[in-house]
Design a protein around this nucleic acid. Sequence first.
DNA 1: CTGAAAGCGCTTACAG
DNA 2: CTGAAAGCGCTTACAG
Lengths: 369, 369
Amino acid sequence: LSTDCQTGPGDGSVEAVGEQPAGGPPRERERAGGPRPPGARRPASTIYDVAALAGVSPSAVSRALNKPGRINARTEQRIREAAATLGYRCNPIARALPTGRTSILALVLSDITNPVYFDLLRGVERVTAGLGYTLVVADARESAAVEWDTVQRLAAWVDGFVLAASRLRDARIRELAGRRPVVLVNRALTGVPGVVPDAGPGVRDAVDHLGSLGHRAIGYLAGPAASYMNRIRRRSLAEHATARGVAVVEIGSGQPTVEGGRAAAGRVLGEGVPAVVAYNDLMAMGLVAACRERGVDVPGRLSVVGFDDIFGADLMTPALSTVASPLGDGGGEAGRRLVAAVEGRPEPAVAPLATRFVARGSTGPAGSP
Amino acid sequence: LSTDCQTGPGDGSVEAVGEQPAGGPPRERERAGGPRPPGARRPASTIYDVAALAGVSPSAVSRALNKPGRINARTEQRIREAAATLGYRCNPIARALPTGRTSILALVLSDITNPVYFDLLRGVERVTAGLGYTLVVADARESAAVEWDTVQRLAAWVDGFVLAASRLRDARIRELAGRRPVVLVNRALTGVPGVVPDAGPGVRDAVDHLGSLGHRAIGYLAGPAASYMNRIRRRSLAEHATARGVAVVEIGSGQPTVEGGRAAAGRVLGEGVPAVVAYNDLMAMGLVAACRERGVDVPGRLSVVGFDDIFGADLMTPALSTVASPLGDGGGEAGRRLVAAVEGRPEPAVAPLATRFVARGSTGPAGSP
DNA sequence: CTGAAAGCGCTTACAG
DNA sequence: CTGAAAGCGCTTACAG
């Protein structure tokens, strides 16, 4: 690692100008314009400077620093010393031009402020860093337009994308995937690799739980129309509820945020359902908060279930019952697959992540207080 | 904007190959190796392709696309049409090599999972995007080593950094600032521009509030030693408490997370103080949760105050009293200053952000239940 | 093992 | 207004 394009003073110490290696003083590169103006940053040294100091050709420097072993050991040693003396560090932009590779990967999140992505992010981070890539994160602010603009700007700079809960239309995703490797998370699209949770197990247990509590009807508080997971969750809920003889009432979609959940409280209560499953925890939390503010008892008058098991779900009162997905593992898997794609290695499809229902205080029998 | 390096089909449609402009068919660039293998991505077109099609020199293409008006209007029009026909888009990496500028800015967060950064991030995002820059976000995972590694990797790629609550040593920050423009947030360092909240007003009101509730002693649950804000908050608390004749007891530092707050519950309770101010909301929330689990009433037996007013602080029960900083504005300001520095414009220092105390349910008179 | 040379795709003085 | 040329800092066949 210290020998590739990340080369430089290993401990980050500045420009050690210690003893000169034998062979005369380093010739300073001629720069037009005489002495630099005060305050100007000193120009970084290049492989030409290192080559001159080590008494070899620039190509030898490139080889020595990038393919250790492919060059005479003594020469390599001399080159490394020269590089260290000059505080040389590879210019990755200059390297990217001929190679077409930057070793940077982008993780684009539909909403960077949704805590559901914390584990995902750490998972992608861990794996990609371990594989020698730098990860940058970008935010789509829950907007397809912003997301498209973002990936377009980034496409020239990064080797590939992990798109989490992309709000892009299928055609856009395909277009991007035609330009750079793409791995999806929380979205399935034929022909594009993806990591998706299987809502089934978690939803089934949630429905069983609500059913055994005596609820014969469940509301579904929908999320954004552009959300794949919204469709999956709605369908899965309908499926398992029907199988158990429980009715499902869909409640119009809203912003997938705490505010969106708050704003939906009136509609949810208006439906008169004894239980509601929200598109995600953010909405569920907003709904619970709004109920509390209106003096509506949760779970006495309304049981609430969310999705994701995000930060804060277990800290509220009542704590939120929710369907959790192991997105930490999912992120690692997505990172691994993306790197494989970038490096041109084939990778078999992966099994969907298993979800599970976590029962907490926000669900209970009807009619308590 | 559509004329600079972001040039390309405005609506993102793929490679329109409509009617050929007058002047003969576009000569296809000769590529060695004959026809491309199936599945290979088609090579992107360059200014040479556009120049050939428009019948001008590559430099004319560069000028037409980058400095509208500096070239004959009809020629420019012809060039734009050729570019559109070929679906040309500028290669920003190739442009960055001679210019040394990428128009990318990095926001490095001490911990990307701390909701305190949500507003900050959106603020930086809004301003830098408006100024024509792409923002990438990186995570330091609360580790100086990870942070240093991250900024080193990114330094060659970005035009400048916003460092939020950097855990780097002063010397490291100065070293980085010598290489690229840096703006700090939640950290002050002579010679490096920064945006910091003035803890004073918020802490004073918090102390007044606790004092008027009858508390004669306040614990301070410390955060990371590497945190500048930890020092500021501790000092400010000591100052205002002393002024009001209230004792302050420092309680050893821990991880600035919910878990860290939970883990500190024993120590806090052991001190026997009737009130505690935590380094941040994350710790305060963990502390409150741990108290609830132990059956210790908040605020009856312990009043708890946090810092930051993060997501979830108002959703818990009891809702968290806290000292809020307007980091959304701070982020905008930081973004503006960074762009100014990158573009070589001087920028006057900015006034510290005003904090304010938000009283909620986690603070109250001693000895209720 | 090593070097000379061409090339990656732009920008930008310098001439005309 | 426009073009020819040099240069940004690397990599990589191609020869020796």
